[in-house]
């Protein structure tokens, strides 16, 4: 049987610039190993893992303390982030999350993936998608506060540490997400 050999377009200069548009994402296992080594570095260097929601808590505690300092200090949740004499934003997770923004931007720029866009499925309006993005954020703020962490601090960090509560959390997270997906298929599919 004759084999069909597909060759590159001979007109294309192999040393020329790559085609415009976003580059494909990194292999998930490779990206995961990279992420795991970053997490391991945090464990070894400072004795703690990654996080995200904690930085939001510090930011909200600081903003609230600007408007209502006494209320913020006495609040059982925000007060946790206003202890000590240091500025509330002088916190490990705040510095880490600023780094996350820069690291993501660098990676995105290198791969031509920085675009002004709104991620949504083909069947939902922009207003609808933005309303759900806001609602989802607010829901997750409650979830992260109750669980004492989010996907970074609980699932990833606690997962690697074999933390009992984190594994309970992780299973619940996947269960909650799969149970919700069908109801929101119009947002995404």
């Amino acid at each position: 049987m004759e084999r069909i050999v597909v060759t590159r377009d001979v007109m294309e200069d192999p040393a020329g610039p790559p085609p415009p548009g976003p580059r494909p994402y990194t292999n998930p296992y490779l990206a995961g190993v990279g992420l795991g080594l970053v997490l391991l570095a945090a464990f070894v260097l400072v004795g703690r893992g990654l996080g995200a929601s904690g930085a939001f808590n510090s930011l909200v505690a600081w903003l609230t303390s600007l408007v209502a300092p006494d209320y913020a200090k006495d609040n059982p949740f925000l007060g946790n982030y206003l202890n000590g004499d240091d500025h509330p934003l002088k916190a490990w997770l705040v510095f880490e999350l600023v780094g996350v923004a820069i690291g993501a931007l660098v990676s995105g720029l290198l791969a031509r993936r920085v675009v002004r866009t709104i991620e949504r499925g083909p069947r939902i309006s922009i207003a609808g998608r933005l309303a759900l993005a806001f609602l989802g954020g607010a829901l997750m703020a409650f979830g992260a506060a109750i669980a004492r962490g989010c996907t970074s601090g609980q699932a990833l960090t606690g997962g690697a540490m074999l933390n009992l509560g984190s594994w309970v959390f992780m299973l619940a997270l996947f269960a909650g997400a799969y149970a919700t997906a069908w109801f929101l298929r119009k947002e995404w599919r």
Binding site: A52, E119, L132, A133, F134, L135, G136, G137, A138, L139, M140, F142, G143, A144, A145, I146, A147, R148, C150, T151, S152, Q154, V168, F169, M170, L171, A172, L173, F174, A175, G176, A177, Y178, A179, T180, A181, L184, E187, W188
Partner: peptide, 15 residues
């Protein structure tokens, strides 16, 4: 908290 985060993940699209 994990259940709420799972629901919020699909609603909001991110963590």
């Amino acid at each position: 908290g994990g259940l709420l985060l799972g629901i919020g993940f699909v609603v909001g699209g991110y963590c």
